[in-house]
Amino acid sequence: MIRKLLFIRKFKTGDWLIITLTSFLIVLSMFMWWDLPDGKYIEIEKGQSTLGTYSINQDRIILVDGQIGQSQIEIKNGKARIKKSPCRKQYCVHQGWVNKKNQMVVCLPNYVSLFIIGDKKNYDSINY
């Protein structure tokens, strides 16, 4: 058992140095890129058309008539979610709250999607 653990001895000072440096790089990149900026507005789309842009700081419930029924979108405490949806699988409801810039919730069966945007809209390609 102890003989098996002897491979630790093969690590020299420089190896430990490099492992430490790489770990530092990993932590640094986590701090740099895992902290996405919060969004400012939410934009609701039905199919290809934009239904409206709402501030994320104003609590409200928006009702959207989609392709197969009515979706309920809730904005609360700087976050947004699809609260109720007529779709069968309820993926959009289970995704829960979103508040980071460029996040989105999409309900494909109902053609309803909501995007979190910062100061301006970043384009992405989405087509029904």
Binding site: K10, F11, K12, T13, G14, D15, L17, I18, I19, T22, L25
Partner: peptide, 18 residues
Amino acid sequence: DINKAFMSVIGLSVVSSS
């Protein structure tokens, strides 16, 4: 070319994969 007594192939492997 780093001295083999200071750094083994493990370090080189980590650096190259990163």
